[in-house]
């Protein structure tokens, strides 16, 4: 197999994730953790024995306050990311997530074969997301949507602001808050499973491919084989993508 790589790749530094994408990513990670932790507490509060009077304690109150503050940040951050899917560089574009042709599924299959099933074959060398990752992010975006709808649907009756009130139709459609809370709670588990797999695969790619996958979400740079970069630029040129090389 090694013989396939007879010629030596040149690595090129490619500015893949722009600053807004990175900020979005880490902000999202932070509030997601906050929402999951407080969400668990809200759904099943721990026994914290105390001899304090109720008037001196506000444990659930704080948990809910954090949940709702994080929820607003989560929501506006999510809306921002949708917007960036139209104005950001090609690696942030919505076409990375929503299949627009057969090639997308072909690439998914290729990634499944090599990375997940670990069959022998030619590695797919993408620059931004690979198609499988992009497709799974598509589902996370749907889950973000579900979580925002159900969350603000529950929040609507606790608020006097028009924004949450816009969601008061959600409990009406699902037949009341009991159902909305169920959906809200089940969807949380999607995020937990996603985080485990996502973090693992980031490390996996870094470990196997050595292209700086992990640090790319910090600095924005990935180290891409010249060949792969050229191919990527040919299929969908984007002059905004910064690289090291002067032209």
């Amino acid at each position: 197999m090694a013989k396939k790589y007879v010629h030596i790749h040149r690595l090129r530094r490619v500015y893949t994730w722009e600053l807004p994408v990175r900020l979005y990513h880490w902000l999202n990670a932070l509030v997601m953790v906050a929402l999951i932790v407080t969400g668990f507490y809200i759904s099943n509060p721990l026994v914290i024995s105390s001899h304090q009077e109720a008037s001196n304690r506000f444990v659930m109150g704080w948990m809910r306050a954090i949940h709702f503050i994080a929820a607003y940040i989560f929501f506006f951050n999510f809306i921002f990311r949708l917007y960036w899917g139209f104005v950001g560089n090609k690696y942030a574009n919505w076409k990375q997530f929503i299949p627009t042709g057969k090639f997308f599924f072909k690439e998914i299959w290729q990634v499944l074969k090599i990375d997940i099933l670990q069959l022998k074959g030619k590695e797919h060398l993408s620059v931004g997301h690979n198609a499988l990752a992009g497709f799974i992010y598509f589902f996370t975006f749907i889950a973000f949507g579900i979580q925002s709808l159900t969350g603000f649907g529950l929040y609507a009756s606790m608020s006097n602001w028009w924004l949450p009130k816009l969601f008061s139709w959600v409990p009406a459609i699902l037949g009341g808050d009991i159902m909305v809370r169920q959906v809200h709670h089940w969807t949380m588990w999607f995020f937990i499973l996603f985080v485990v797999i996502h973090v693992y695969l980031v490390f996996y790619h870094d470990y196997v491919e050595g292209r700086g996958e992990t640090s790319s979400m910090v600095g924005g740079w990935k180290f891409i084989e010249e060949e792969a970069f050229q191919k990527d630029q040919q299929t969908a040129p984007d002059r905004r993508v910064l690289t090291d090389e002067k032209k």
Binding site: V47, S50, A54, S55, N56, R57, F58, V59, M60
Partner: peptide
């Protein structure tokens, strides 16, 4: 409700 907010529950 104050007991709810305080995190004090009947087990």
């Amino acid at each position: 409700r104050p007991f709810f907010d305080a995190g004090l529950y009947v087990e």
